[in-house]
């Protein structure tokens, strides 16, 4: 009995089923692949395995997959003394492959059906495009389920405690989750448009909310965006779980930034976030404690500014 993949597709809850049908093999597969040619000898392939820490090497001719060499093939070659011979004679040629557009559920059932730990992936044109291991499947599933559950939690928490004349919303923001950063702000924009707030007010609230939301993703260990809208105020709060800010006066200065190189390369971290937020807000408060976290509250008057 091969080791079963630990997911029973018949009994899984709808959210899980939905995820493994929506995700495609190409969303989970590894695209950085070390391959070899049929005339490469098994010794060379063994060295690729050793240097790159992989246990299966696809053998390609142009973009086409013509075979696989596994660690077991290498062990046999060492055992029987043909390690210096070309891959062509010893590679597995009848291969079980997945197509990149198949739902991830196919991969799950393949791991169930066959004893292999990884499958090559080809596209519609039969070109080799990647490899998928059970580890790839699990991390793609975890990532997607995390998003799914965050969304479900947000739905559950929101709308329940609204009192007449007031709307409250709360959204969890994960560290470095640039994929979803901005979603909470987009919800706020929808609510404000629904309330017929003026364009300037929507814009100022969007700046404050988006900057604070991105800040949680960039700088904190994760946190929450909280919106409270009553008859006269839009209260936008960002609460995070650390690491806290040493000098809060310094961080609201324009141009001050602690962002690293890759964050900057994405167009964030220019040191404009908090100064922008402060500028658009009618009221602005920041509290922070090192090791605990930061709480920023910005209020924008729903009726706009007195433009005197």
């Amino acid at each position: 009995m091969p080791h079963r993949f630990p997911l029973n597709t018949d009994k899984a809850p709808n959210a899980v089923l939905e995820v493994i049908l929506r995700l495609k093999v190409k969303d989970a597969m590894s695209k950085t692949i070390f391959s070899a040619k049929k005339n490469d000898n098994l010794r060379q392939i063994q060295h690729i395995m050793r240097d790159k820490g992989v246990t299966g090497i696809p053998i390609l001719e142009d973009d086409r997959l013509i075979g696989m060499i596994s660690v077991n093939d290498i062990i046999s070659a060492l055992d029987y003394g043909y390690i210096n011979e070309p891959a062509d004679n010893y590679m597995t040629k009848s291969l079980i492959v997945l197509e990149d557009d198949m739902p991830l559920s196919f991969a799950v059932s393949y791991f169930d059906k066959y004893p292999y730990r990884r499958f090559p992936v080809i596209n519609k044109e039969k070109k080799f495009v990647g490899m998928i291991s059970s580890r790839d499947v699990l991390s793609a599933l975890l990532h997607e389920l995390n998003n799914e559950i965050t969304e479900l939690e947000n739905k559950l928490n929101n709308g329940r405690n609204d009192v007449p004349g007031s709307i409250t919303r709360e959204y969890s923001i994960q560290k470095f989750d640039f994929e979803n950063a901005g979603k909470a702000s987009f919800e706020l924009k929808k609510i404000l448009k629904g309330l017929n707030a003026s364009r300037q007010v929507v814009r100022r609230a969007s700046v404050a909310s988006y900057e604070l939301e991105i800040n949680i993703a960039i700088h904190s260990n994760g946190g929450k965006m909280r919106f409270e809208i009553d008859e006269s105020n839009i209260i936008i709060e960002a609460v995070d779980f650390g690491p806290g800010i040493e000098d809060v006066d310094l961080v609201v200065q324009e141009g001050y930034s602690t962002a690293n190189e890759w964050i900057r390369s994405m167009g964030f971290g220019a040191g404009m976030g908090l100064s922008n937020t402060k500028r658009v807000a009618d009221e602005f408060e920041i509290q922070s404690e090192l090791g605990k976290g930061t709480h920023i509250k910005s209020i924008i008057y729903l009726g706009g500014r007195d433009e005197a």
Binding site: F178, A181, G182, S206, M266, G267, F268
Partner: peptide, 15 residues
Amino acid sequence: TIQAHKNSVAVASQF
């Protein structure tokens, strides 16, 4: 811009 990632789209959409 040269920022060809999803956050540019999010900013464009929001603003």
